[in-house]
């Protein structure tokens, strides 16, 4: 997506258009996912709204047996410390390299934003919290699928530990490869939405997002962000700029 200062007035106009379109579609205001006056984003918003209206809340994605676990490719960023990869952060890549060398002994997940008690969790602290293990199907937007076992802390436990401020509506995830993305509170509080540190009974392998990744079982694969470093709870929708899905041409909601 093209960006630049000259686009700003146009983007403000788009936002004004979008909020009126959003109002018409959703009956809400700026706290809704924007459409930027873009036809495809209006379709995405319609799908999101229809899912929230028509689908049962917090229904569990199917869980499988241990014997169903399958082979699974590691795609996208498979090592945030590798500058040769197409997605690499000059700021966070070298930090990740050090953390990786120390087997994530100094790694911390910060949780901040619209929370009552901002906190940072080490891997050991996360592992001491009650865990959830689930064998679920990963569905990639590309069309492939795999069944894997994931072990981690329900995101809900973390959000309860830091305490949500009234008005908290979205949870944003920031990763070491400089990608950022968010989910709404309904998906964030879903019992199967976990911060996973284990995969198939082992430590989460490097290619699959070590040391900690998100699992959102009600959306396609790209929402389950890998290599987490920071979680920010927000009251308003955040498209995360050029780090987010939308400005790279992807739908923010991917339950379909």
């Amino acid at each position: 997506m093209k960006k630049g200062k000259e686009d700003l007035p146009r983007r403000d106009f788009m936002k004004a258009l979008a909020s009126s379109a959003g109002l018409a579609l959703a009956g809400c205001g700026q706290t809704e996912p924007p459409t930027y006056g873009h036809l495809l984003r209006m379709g995405d918003l319609l799908t999101y709204k229809a899912h929230r209206l028509l689908l049962p809340e917090h229904a569990l994605a199917r869980e499988y047996d241990y014997g169903d676990i399958s082979s699974v490719p590691a795609i996208g960023t498979t090592n945030p410390a590798d500058p040769a990869r197409s997605i690499y952060s000059a700021e966070h890549g070298p930090v990740y390299e050090k953390l990786l060398a120390d087997e994530f002994a100094d790694w911390k997940l910060t949780v901040e934003g619209s929370v009552l008690r901002p906190a940072a969790f080490t891997l050991a602290e996360l592992k001491r919290l009650p865990s959830r293990t689930q064998i679920t199907r990963h569905a990639c937007e590309e069309g492939w699928s795999a069944i894997c076992q994931w072990t981690g802390v329900p995101l809900r436990s973390i959000l309860e530990a830091v305490g949500l401020q009234p008005g908290a509506r979205y949870v944003q995830f920031h990763a070491y490869d400089d990608l950022a993305d968010g989910i709404d509170m309904l998906d964030a509080l879903h019992p199967q939405t976990i911060l996973a540190y284990g995969m198939n009974g082992r430590e989460l392998p490097l290619g699959h997002g070590a040391p900690l990744r998100l699992r959102v079982e009600t959306q396609v694969g790209y929402k389950s962000m890998k290599f987490l470093r920071r979680i920010v709870v927000t009251e308003h929708f955040d498209d995360n700029g050029s780090q987010g899905a939308i400005q790279n041409g992807w739908s923010w909601y991917a339950g379909i």
Binding site: V72, A74, N200, H208, G249, W250
Partner: peptide, 30 residues
């Protein structure tokens, strides 16, 4: 046993127009 492997040719050549492809698919489906 199940395996995992890394897709290394991604930065080399990988066709993916699903960003708009999927959104247009679902809009047309509506």
């Amino acid at each position: 046993a199940p395996v995992t492997a890394t897709r290394d040719y991604e930065h080399d050549y990988f066709f993916n127009e699903n960003g708009w492809g999927r959104s247009l698919h679902f809009l047309a489906a509506w």
